[in-house]
């Protein structure tokens, strides 16, 4: 990040902040369909639903990690010098 400024990182932070919640909720709709029982029911369906929940947790963990890593990079970047 030789040429990376704090402003670049902050822009990235804002950009990702706008979509990170959508990412975390990406599996909510499939989960909701499975929970309704209107698409698919039975033992296999139950297993599929459980797997969906597990992967939703992994997705949220990954999203939080990415978000946290960007926040840490912004925090570690030196403040911009005010223009002379």
């Amino acid at each position: 990040m030789n040429d990376t400024t704090r402003a670049d990182l902050e822009r990235l932070q804002i950009q990702v902040g706008r979509v990170i919640d959508d990412l975390k909720a990406a599996l909510d709709a499939p989960l909701s369909i499975m929970a309704s029982g209107e698409a698919w029911t039975g033992n296999r369906a139950d297993g599929f639903g459980t797997s969906l929940e597990i992967h939703k947790s992994i997705l949220q963990r990954g999203a939080d990690t990415i978000s946290g890593d960007i926040d840490a990079a912004v925090a570690a970047a030196p403040p911009e010098e005010p223009p002379a």
């Binding site: 990040m1 030789n2 990376t4 670049d8 990182l9 990235l12 950009q15 990702v16 979509v19 990412l23 599996l27 499939p30 599929f48 797997s51 969906l52 992967h55 992994i58 997705l59 963990r61 990954g62 999203a63 939080d64 990690t65 990415i66 978000s67 946290g68 890593d69 960007i70 990079a73």
Partner: peptide
């Protein structure tokens, strides 16, 4: 992508590994 934007700024995150796991599962599902 967000990952490529991070790379451009010299950043990386282990969170993408989690996302890759989920992506593979979604493909299979």
């Amino acid at each position: 992508s967000v990952r490529s934007d991070l790379r451009t700024l010299g950043l990386s995150s282990t969170g993408f590994q989690d996302l890759a796991v989920v992506q593979e599962w979604v493909d299979s599902a």
